[in-house]
Amino acid sequence: MPRLKKLIIYCLGILFLISAESAFAQKNGFTVVIDPGHGGRDPGAVGSSSKEKDIVLSVGKKLGELIKNNHKDVNVLYTRDTDKFVELNKRAEIANKAKADLYISLHCNALDRKRQSPQGVETFVLGLHRSKDNLDVAKAENSVILYEDDYSTKYQGFNPNEPESYIMFEFMTDQYLQQSVYFASLVQNKLVNNSKRVNRNVRQAGFLVLREVAMPSILVELGYISNAVDERYMKTESGQRSLANSVYIAFNEYKREYDKKSHVFTNPNRQTATTSSPATRAEARDGASEYRVQFLTASGKLSNNSPQLKGLKPVDFYVEGSTYKYTYGSTSNLNEINNTLKTVRAKFKDAFVVEFRNGVRVR
């Protein structure tokens, strides 16, 4: 029981740190961290003629180059870009220090050679193990900490081979789960349809490296190195290029949606003018936050009975440049605005919460 309490306290501490990191982060641009698993003295899974550490490093660097070449506003960081061993907590530290917006961990799966190996790609997000197979994958990837000195102290007594250690994941935050699942679904879809990989679905499991990062994050198993067909594909240059390209296409879609909801425009010195109907707005004291649900943009002002508003009344708007941004609801209570968001999303699925202070949109 003392050990269980220690695990729970540690998890609650992580929750606090993640919340603090999110609340106070102020960054410019978008940062993605690419994490090729294993490396150096840790080969990862070993196939008949290849090693996981080499395959994922090659795919990771190809992915990074695609992002750099096509998204000048994105900062690409690697947890490793050479064949070196990097401890799991150091990988997370790289991402957290950079206040990254997205974390992509790349791996290859494997089964014991005594068992017939399946084939295909899986994309994981942090969560509970829904099956023994998911737990086995998490155990295999988490076992990298056994290469680290004093891992028991460093990871608060976590032992990757003991199922009871994974109880801590029941207490982990789902703060980034929705974004992680969305991105994981994009990646899985592109790997299956673009690279023609066998689909083993999006899954949840307790990966230490995903637990430690304070941002949307996924872990991709690019294929089974213990399967002859998968291994042959993954170790070829063309296969690695295709895998990297599929993940890149998914990233491109994710980034486009991120920009849409973050309202990234070409003019960094834009001014925001707010025009509102006072009756629809909450009275907020100076400096206090006011929350609204933004659901629509238009090139001009809409009439109150416009069919584009889908019957929402009363609505508010603010203006950026020549674009009218329409909002619904106004409150200083986050729980209340989240309930409003659910209502609005029944009509506008891309609606999201925006924050104002003294009538000005907070970025």
Rank of each mutant, 00 (worst) to 15 (best):
I18N: 14
E355T: 15
V86M: 13
R357Y: 05
R41A: 12
V33N: 08
V319H: 05
P216N: 05
V213I: 10
A25M: 01
Y324N: 02
E170A: 12
A25L: 00
G239K: 00
Y147A: 12
R232A: 15
I104H: 03
N70D: 11
R256W: 03
E122S: 14
L7T: 03
F295N: 06
N245C: 11
L243G: 04
N109V: 01
T340N: 12
S332E: 14
M234Q: 09
A284C: 13
D350M: 03
G120V: 06
Y166R: 01
E170Q: 12
Y10P: 01
F183V: 13
T323M: 07
K68G: 05
A244P: 01
N199I: 09
K154I: 14
I55N: 07
Q179L: 10
K84P: 02
F124A: 01
M1I: 04
L106G: 07
P307N: 08
N28E: 06
A95W: 06
V121L: 08
I225V: 14
N134W: 00
E141Y: 13
E170I: 05
N201E: 12
F124N: 06
S306P: 06
G157S: 11
E283Y: 15
R197A: 00
V181E: 15
K5F: 02
P43L: 09
E336C: 10
S303Q: 07
K97I: 01
R211Q: 15
S48M: 15
N358C: 09
D83K: 04
Q156F: 15
P2F: 13
F171A: 10
A92N: 07
T173V: 10
P163S: 00
L57M: 02
N269H: 09
N159G: 00
R363F: 09
A98S: 11
E253P: 02
E141L: 11
L77V: 04
P307R: 03
A25F: 00
I225Q: 15
F169K: 07
Q271E: 08
N96P: 03
S49F: 10
K301L: 14
N358F: 05
K325L: 05
N161M: 02
G64P: 07
R270V: 12
F251R: 10
S330V: 07
A279W: 13
S322V: 03
V121D: 09
Y155E: 04
E170G: 14
R241A: 15
S117G: 12
A205R: 08
F356K: 08
Y182P: 08
P307C: 04
T236R: 13
F158K: 02
L17S: 07
V33D: 03
Y78A: 12
N96I: 01
K190P: 00
N199Y: 08
E87R: 11
F169H: 13
G60F: 10
A279H: 13
